Simulated scan of single mutants.
Amino acid sequence: MSDDDRLLTATPILNFDHPSIAQLIEDRGWKALSQHDRIGAVYDFVRNEIAFGYNSADDISAADVLADGFGQCNTKGTLLMALLRAVGVRCRLHGFTVHKELQRGVVPELVYPIAPEEIIHSWVEVKTETGWANLEGFILDAEFLSALQSTFSDTPSLCGYGAGTNCLQAPPVEWTGSDTYIQETGIVQDFGTFDAPDDFYANHQQSFSFVKGSLYRHIIRHWMNARVRRIRSGSVPQIPGRALPNHNHEDSRHAS
């Protein structure tokens, strides 16, 4: 199999042959679009119709992400890759870690000290008609990002609340045919590119003990998702030691 062909194949994680994914693609009519518009339509779907949120694990399948209806960098990236390949667009994964500071404000303060210093992160590289483009701007849905922009209206750079950007008020998150980013400034380690998420997670997993992993899956991620929903509604929790720039925040009893 050629390198290009490998970047179009299904895998256990990129299971775009699943009926729910096949039906979605048929209903949306994405295959009838030009390549540029196919990428844009799939990208916009994952960015805004799959809400920012935390799933049970990074390595769940694309069909599971679609069923959840929400995801973070890794899981939304899995769904994006599956949809792109299903409509004939070649793509691959680029793996990283980001510093946990990027998630502060979403991770409850009570558990923030025990969170890993570096968090597994990835973005999607897509092959366009003119070359490769890095897609990361799909992570935060527009409503969530708008809440951050409104709260931090005078803040050009933000590392926290799921964002890592030096241009918060106008981050490059729209599909125009080139790179998109929203967590780029939090990157610590670069693991390089992988044909599929399956290859990436076979080599790189978040370092949780059994107890911490169980706590995350069953308690902490639900707590984080509740905070994400509050942020999306405009109620942004204050991070201890950081003053919010306006009155649009929760009081101190919600800071943990």
Rank of each mutant, 00 (worst) to 15 (best):
H94A: 08
E101N: 14
G88P: 04
C91D: 08
A86N: 09
L102E: 10
R90I: 12
D68K: 03
A82E: 01
R92S: 09
K100G: 14
K76P: 04
T75Y: 03
T97D: 13
G88F: 04
G95N: 06
A63F: 14
E101T: 07
S56I: 11
G88M: 04
F52D: 14
C73K: 00
H94Q: 10
D64H: 12
L84R: 00
K100H: 13
L66V: 04
G71P: 06
V89S: 09
L66H: 01
L79A: 07
D68V: 15
G77W: 00
L83D: 08
R90M: 13
L80V: 00
A86I: 04
D58P: 07
H94S: 09
H94W: 12
F52W: 05
Y54S: 11
G69Q: 02
C73P: 06
K100C: 09
V87C: 12
F96S: 15
C73Y: 04
H94M: 13
F70Y: 09
K76T: 06
F52P: 08
G88L: 07
L66Y: 03
D64I: 08
I60S: 12
V98N: 11
V65R: 02
G95L: 07
V87L: 02
M81L: 09
C73S: 14
G53A: 05
S56G: 09
L102N: 11
V65G: 06
A62F: 02
G71N: 08
T75Q: 01
L84F: 01
G88E: 12
I60G: 14
A82C: 08
V98L: 12
V89T: 13
